[in-house]
Amino acid sequence: MDDEPAIRVRGLRKAYGDTAAVGGVDLEVAHGEVFALLGPNGAGKTTTVEILEGYRRRDDGEVSVLGVDPEVAQRRGAGAEAKRWRDRVGIVLQGTGEFDELSVGEVVRHFARFYPAADDPAAVIERVGLSDKVRARTHTLSGGQKRRLDVALGIIGRPELLFLDEPTTGFDPEARREFWALIRDLQAGGTTILLTTHYLEEAEALADRVGVIARGRLIAVDTPRSLGRRDSALATVSWRTPEGAWQRTESATPTAVVADLAARFSGEVPGLTVTRPTLEDVYLEMIGGAA
């Protein structure tokens, strides 16, 4: 089983009525990897992830998650086997499930009971930054705090594999940074993570590899740095001429361009910038091309 990747998907298909939500996805995520799935709304991200989580049935294809077919694990009567599989998988769904009248501490402690080797509830609450809300009823939490509670419930069982479906929606920038630190922390502990997100900087900051899904197909898989060959894309150098007009040029050797400019201006080049396409640039081009 150790040669087996944490997640292996072959030819995954799922249609709702006549609409193909997922039209033949192949995907592999290695043990210990953080994989980010990017894509516009309705591209098939959540459908794919929920099939892997055992919530939805697929129409066709092979799926193995930690060596188990989630659909089999979810079947009635799968019993002990399904429970063992669920022990090893943590899930943070896109929507929050609310327990209005219970406190943060009560909910986390309750979920800890479900797992054979659950983490210490107080430590997990601390880890997601809700220590000062332990006694607060969950309905009094802000959107970002509710999301942190979701994450706490996702990791309380110390999963080998963690699914995070748009985990930081509604976070302020500071909370997002803290969340990233938590994810890096989990990754350092060996947790495999499959993340979906709308925030490209999030994928860039966290993911070992990103996959772009559009119209139910995985159209690119690569490291964030080289997705869409952006690492070898031309750099854009722009500056201002002595007359005040903006000038720009694309070049494979921007250092030479800058050196040349420096010589020409004999010192500071006014308004000098050197840029390469951002992840967002290549992403938008990709999904634009697929649409």
Binding site: D87, P116, G157
Partner: peptide
């Protein structure tokens, strides 16, 4: 989503 969440646990 409470039921869905329980379903995702052991």
């Amino acid at each position: 989503g409470v039921l869905k969440r329980f379903l995702g646990t052991p």
